[in-house]
């Protein structure tokens, strides 16, 4: 037993030394090291943002990006900030769901003399540069387009909306759920928001919730998921009930909208017989804006303790107004997609 423990110990020390040496060598190759804390690594969107940040920082600034998962948790996010500060990174990019927590994180980084840029959720203190994806106008557009399509097909059926959100993130209402509803009501002022429940960003949870929602109110005809995972869960629920279908883009049972514009969503959106029809999102521009802003602070081009807002478009993709070629381009440039969207759509339709 002693021999075994000794062998394990030697192996750990040996491997650790090799790894540490490699890391050190790696870091000296770069001019700077920046940290990135995504909201959660569990979503395709955030994984792609991190990958773009890593590649773009290396290519454009010879800078290494250290990624630590925020795990959609306050504790994990703050621990990640502390970790990056103790590593002595030159700058940090943070995407956190809580405005107060973001403010605390900015204060911690500034106290250590490290510049920080925040994304999407504006921090309470607003003392650092911020990247703001323009989700609100895109969500309003999606709501309006969904309502227009429904009304064109069913002029006499009142619009009833169900929504899946994250729960606890107030700005999601302004940028996603509330904005979507605003768009719907711009077309049909009488449209009713039947319910809004927390899908927890999960496909399975969202499916279970929408099954209950459709049981409670079978007349629901517009469903909005505050991310694509939740919209896909809503679609699975509809399909289980024999719904979730369209006739070559003409809504029969309901229209589903999501957010993030991931490959899984676009495959459904371009299927003419599927009721998941709209989404919006951008990865590349947001990731690049984060890197550019952090590097500008590191290089002293902009102050690190002054609030500035860089606005980034969040393009919309829907069955009726976007071509499959545009979807293909979006996935290639944003989600590192290497497939053929048209072929994937056809395969999924089988």
């Amino acid at each position: 037993m002693k021999k075994l423990l000794l062998t394990v110990l030697v192996l750990i020390i040996g491997l650790g030394s090799v790894f540490a040496a490699g890391e050190q060598e790696d870091a000296t190759e770069y001019d700077h090291v920046i940290g990135k804390i995504p909201y959660t690594f569990e979503h395709a969107y955030h994984q792609s943002v991190c990958r773009e940040i890593t590649e773009y920082a290396a290519k454009m600034y010879n800078t290494k990006a250290v990624i630590i998962d925020g795990e959609s948790s306050a504790e994990a996010t703050l621990a990640a900030v502390e970790n990056l500060i103790s590593q002595g990174v030159d700058g940090i990019a943070l995407h956190c769901g809580d405005a107060g927590l973001s403010a605390k994180a900015v204060d911690m980084a500034h106290a250590a003399g490290i510049p920080m840029v925040t994304t999407l959720i504006r921090p309470e203190n607003m003392t650092a540069p911020h990247i703001q994806p323009q989700e609100t106008p895109s969500s309003i557009y999606m709501g309006a387009e969904a309502a227009r399509q429904w009304k064109a097909a069913h002029p006499n059926t009142p619009i009833k909306v169900a929504m899946l959100n994250f729960g606890g993130i107030e700005q999601v209402w302004d940028m996603r759920t509330g904005a979507f509803m605003e768009g719907v009501q711009s077309v049909d002022p009488g449209a009713e928001l039947v319910t809004m429940l927390n899908g927890q960003g999960s496909t399975v949870k969202s499916m279970e919730i929408i099954l209950d929602v459709l049981q409670s109110d079978p007349d629901v005809n517009l469903i909005f998921g505050a991310n694509d995972e939740m919209a896909l869960g809503a679609l699975a629920a509809c399909e289980q009930l024999g719904r979730g279908v369209m006739d070559n883009g003409v809504p029969l049972t309901e229209i589903i909208a999501g957010l993030d514009a991931s490959s899984a969503a676009l495959v459904k959106i371009f299927d003419p017989n599927c009721s998941f029809k709209l989404t919006h999102g951008a990865v590349k521009d947001i990731a690049r804006a984060e890197v550019d802003t952090v590097m500008a602070m590191i290089n002293g081009e902009i102050p690190m303790d002054e609030y500035t807002e860089t606005r980034v478009l969040s393009p919309t993709f829907d069955f009726w107004n976007t071509t499959i070629a545009e979807g293909q381009r979006h996935l290639e440039t944003n989600f590192f997609y290497e497939g053929d969207l048209e072929a994937d759509v056809k395969a999924a339709m089988k």
Partner: peptide, 19 residues
């Protein structure tokens, strides 16, 4: 589970599943 999804190129596996 996360690693397998990542080897497949994403956070979940949906595309390319048989009918």
């Amino acid at each position: 589970a996360f690693l397998i999804a990542r080897w497949d190129g994403g956070t979940n596996i949906m595309l390319g599943l048989p009918g």
